[in-house]
C-alpha cells in the first residue's frame, strides 16, 4: 500500500494505514504546518509558517491583500505543494503520501471559494453532488450526471443552507448569495473533517455575509469540524471564530485566541507602508 521510502524516515506513522487514522482523528491535529513556505519566482508568498489546527477550532486568517492567505489555504487542501517545510493533514505529510491517499485526504477537506468555482451550466444537484466525487468511482460520477444519484443527501444539504427548493435549477441562474450556499452544500455532502473558506463573503452584501458566516460557523460546530477561513473584515472574524491568525507579507504575525486580539494588533497588521508587497497571492 505504501511506496518504499528510501529515506526510511517517519516509518512509524507511515506504516499505519489511513484507515486507522480515519478511525482515530483525535490523535493528530487536523492541520499541521512546519516552516512551510511558498515561493513564486523570486518572491516568497509565504515563508516559515508554523501552524497547528485541531478539531473543533474555528480559525480566521486575517491580513491585508497579498499577505498569503489564499496561498496558505491552498497548502491546507493540497492543491499546492510547499516550496519549503512540511504540511500534514490528519498527521499525514502530504509530500510523501501516494496519490490515492492524497485524494483521500483531500476529500476530508472541503473548500469554499470567493468565486464559488461552481459549474454554471450544471443543475444545482450536480454541483452539490460534485462534493461526493472523492468517494465515487468514475462510473458512479458519470451515472449521476445522467440521472442524479443520492438526491436525498444533496437535498438535505441544500435544506441545511436554506435553499432546498433550488435543487434542479441551473446553477448560473442563481444569485451570488445563493451560489455561495450551493458551494456550502457541496462542502457539506463531502462530510469533511475540516472546512476551508477563501474569502467566502467578500463578494456579498453585509446582511448576506453575516448569514453565510453564521452558516459556516454552524456547520463547523455541527460535528466538531475544524474551520479555517480567510477574511478581510476583522469584525466577522472576532464574532464567528475563536482563534485569529494574522498574516502579513507572507509571514505569520500573530496567532491568538479571539479574546486576546487587541485593536493595536489589528491596526499594526493592516498598516500601510511603502514596502507593501505588490505581488498577488495567487489571486482568486
Amino acid at each position: 500500500m505504501i511506496r518504499p521510502d528510501p529515506g526510511g524516515g517517519n516509518r512509524g506513522i507511515r506504516n499505519r494505514s489511513w484507515r486507522q487514522r480515519e478511525s482515530d482523528p483525535g490523535t493528530a491535529p487536523v492541520f499541521s504546518l512546519r516552516g512551510a513556505g511558498v515561493r513564486f519566482g523570486a518572491t516568497w508568498a509565504l515563508e516559515g509558517v508554523d501552524l497547528e489546527v485541531g478539531a473543533g477550532e474555528r480559525v480566521a486568517l486575517v491580513g491585508p491583500s497579498g499577505a498569503g492567505k489564499t496561498t496558505l489555504l491552498s497548502l491546507l487542501n493540497g492543491s499546492r505543494r510547499p516550496t519549503a517545510g512540511r504540511v500534514a493533514v490528519l498527521g499525514r505529510d502530504l509530500a510523501t503520501v501516494r496519490p490515492s491517499e492524497l485524494r483521500h485526504l483531500q476529500r476530508r477537506v472541503g473548500t469554499v471559494h470567493q468565486q464559488h468555482h461552481l459549474v454554471g451550466p450544471l443543475r444545482v444537484v450536480h454541483n452539490v453532488n460534485a462534493g461526493r466525487l472523492g468517494e465515487w468511482s468514475l462510473l458512479e460520477a458519470v451515472r449521476s450526471l445522467i440521472s442524479p444519484t443520492d438526491v436525498a443527501a444533496a437535498e438535505a444539504a441544500l435544506a441545511r443552507v436554506g435553499i432546498a427548493e433550488k435543487l434542479y435549477e441551473r446553477t448560473d441562474t442563481l444569485s451570488g448569495g445563493q451560489q455561495q450556499r450551493v458551494a456550502l452544500a457541496r462542502v457539506l455532502v463531502q462530510r469533511p473533517v475540516a472546512i476551508l473558506g477563501d474569502e467566502p463573503i467578500s463578494s456579498l452584501d453585509p446582511a448576506r455575509a453575516e448569514e453565510v458566516m453564521q452558516l459556516l460557523a454552524g456547520l463547523a460546530g455541527d460535528a466538531g469540524r475544524a474551520l479555517v477561513v480567510s477574511l478581510h473584515a476583522v469584525e466577522h472574524a472576532l464574532r464567528h471564530c475563536n482563534r485569529l491568525v494574522g498574516l502579513r507579507q507572507g509571514r505569520l504575525v500573530f496567532d491568538a485566541a479571539a479574546a486576546e486580539v487587541t485593536p493595536v494588533m489589528v491596526e499594526e497588521l493592516y498598516r500601510i507602508d511603502q514596502s507593501t508587497d505588490e505581488h498577488g497571492e495567487g489571486a482568486a
Partner: peptide
C-alpha cells in the same frame, strides 16, 4: 478554477473533467 476546486477536494482528473 472550477476544475481545480474539484481536484482540491479529492476528485480524480477524469471526474473533474466530467463535472
Amino acid at each position: 478554477a472550477p476544475a481545480r476546486a474539484l481536484r482540491s477536494q479529492g476528485a480524480s482528473a477524469p471526474q473533474a473533467f466530467c463535472y
